[in-house]
Computed example of a mutant assay.
Amino acid sequence: MQEVYINLGIRSYSIYVDTGLLPRLGEYLKVFKLTPRVLLITNPVVGSLYGAVAETALMNAGFEVIRAEIPDGEEYKNLATAEKLYDLAYTRELDRRSPVVALGGGVVGDLAGFVAATYLRGVPFIQVPTTLLAQVDSSVGGKVAVNHPRGKNIIGAFYQPRLVLADLDVLKTLDLREVRAGLAEVIKYGVIADRAFFVWLEENLERLLALEAEPLAHAVAASCRIKARVVQEDETEQGRRAILNFGHTLGHALEALTGYTAYRHGEAVAMGMAAAARLAVALGMFPEGDAVRVINLIRRAGLPVEIPPELSTGDLVASMRRDKKVLAGRLTFVLPVEIGRVEIVRDVPEEAVGRVLRLCYN
Rank of each mutant, 00 (worst) to 15 (best):
I243M: 07
A68C: 03
N60S: 14
V46Q: 04
A217Q: 15
E306P: 00
M1A: 14
P124E: 09
R341G: 00
R177W: 02
L357I: 08
A275H: 08
L21S: 10
P308C: 11
E310I: 07
D323P: 01
Y263V: 02
E212T: 11
I15S: 03
P215T: 11
V353Q: 08
L39P: 01
P71Q: 12
F32K: 10
V281D: 09
L111P: 03
S14H: 13
A116H: 12
D110T: 09
V281F: 09
A68W: 05
L21R: 12
R195H: 11
L357H: 03
G151H: 04
V146W: 11
E214F: 01
A210D: 14
V53Q: 14
V101C: 07
V294W: 03
Y50T: 07
A301V: 07
V100S: 01
L168C: 07
D137L: 04
T56I: 13
A157Y: 13
R322V: 05
E233H: 04
V65A: 10
L49V: 02
G104P: 09
D18I: 10
A116G: 09
L283Y: 07
A277Y: 05
R229D: 13
L209G: 05
H265N: 08
V348L: 11
E255I: 05
D347R: 13
L303Y: 05
D18R: 11
L171K: 07
G73M: 08
P308E: 14
V292M: 08
D72M: 11
A256G: 01
K33R: 14
P23V: 13
D18V: 11
L176H: 13
R97G: 01
V281E: 10
R67C: 03
V305R: 06
D72C: 09
M273Q: 06
L25N: 03
A318C: 00
L279E: 03
R121L: 11
A275L: 13
E338F: 03
E338S: 14
L331S: 12
E214S: 14
Q238H: 10
A184D: 10
G141Y: 00
V128I: 14
E350N: 13
G284L: 12
V230G: 00
F158I: 03
V46M: 08
P349D: 02
H218E: 14
R195L: 01
F198V: 10
N296L: 12
C360G: 06
G156Q: 06
G272T: 02
P287I: 12
Y86F: 15
M273L: 10
E350H: 05
E93K: 15
F198D: 05
Q238R: 15
A102H: 07
T81D: 06
L257K: 09
F197K: 06
A196K: 14
R358A: 15
H148W: 05
N7I: 01
M273W: 05
V115Y: 04
A301W: 04
A210Y: 02
Y90L: 15
E206Y: 10
T19K: 15
K324W: 02
Y76D: 03
R121Q: 07
D323L: 09
G113V: 11
Y260N: 01
F198H: 08
V46P: 01
G26V: 12
G106T: 12
I226D: 00
G26R: 12
R330A: 14
L168K: 04
G329N: 08
V294E: 04
V231F: 00
V179T: 15
V220F: 06
E255P: 01
T91R: 15
A328W: 05
E214N: 13
E338K: 15
E288I: 12
P149E: 01
G106M: 08
T19V: 14
